[in-house]
C-alpha cells in the first residue's frame, strides 16, 4: 500500500478579525521589529494517508467538514 502525505493549511478569511495575529504583531513591534505591519495567524494539519484514487477529494471533504469552519476560515491542501 503506497502512502501519501498532505498538509492542510487553515486560515481566517480576509476581513475576519484575527485578534491573536494582531496581538502578536503588537508584541513584535514592541520588540523593535517595527517593519512588520500585520500578522495573520493560522494552523496546519499533516495527514498521512493511504494512497487511493479519490484521495484528494476525500481530503477536500474532511477539510471542509471538520478541519475548517467555512464560515470564518479557508483551507489550502498541499500534497507532499
Amino acid at each position: 500500500m503506497s502512502k501519501s502525505k498532505a498538509i492542510v493549511y487553515i486560515r481566517l478569511k480576509e476581513g475576519v478579525l484575527d485578534p491573536q495575529g494582531k496581538t502578536i504583531a503588537h508584541a513584535m513591534s514592541n520588540m523593535g521589529y517595527t517593519e512588520f505591519e500585520s500578522v495573520r495567524s493560522g494552523r496546519f494539519f499533516e495527514l498521512e494517508c493511504e494512497t487511493r484514487p479519490d484521495l484528494e477529494k476525500r481530503i477536500d471533504e474532511i477539510s471542509r467538514k471538520l478541519l475548517s469552519n467555512p464560515i470564518i476560515e479557508t483551507y489550502r491542501v498541499e500534497m507532499v
Partner: peptide
C-alpha cells in the same frame, strides 16, 4: 453551531 443547527460561528473574544 458546529452541528449546523444554528447559523454562525463563535470566535475568540475580541480582546482575547
Amino acid at each position: 453551531m458546529e452541528s449546523g443547527l444554528l447559523p454562525g460561528a463563535l470566535m475568540r473574544n475580541s480582546h482575547l
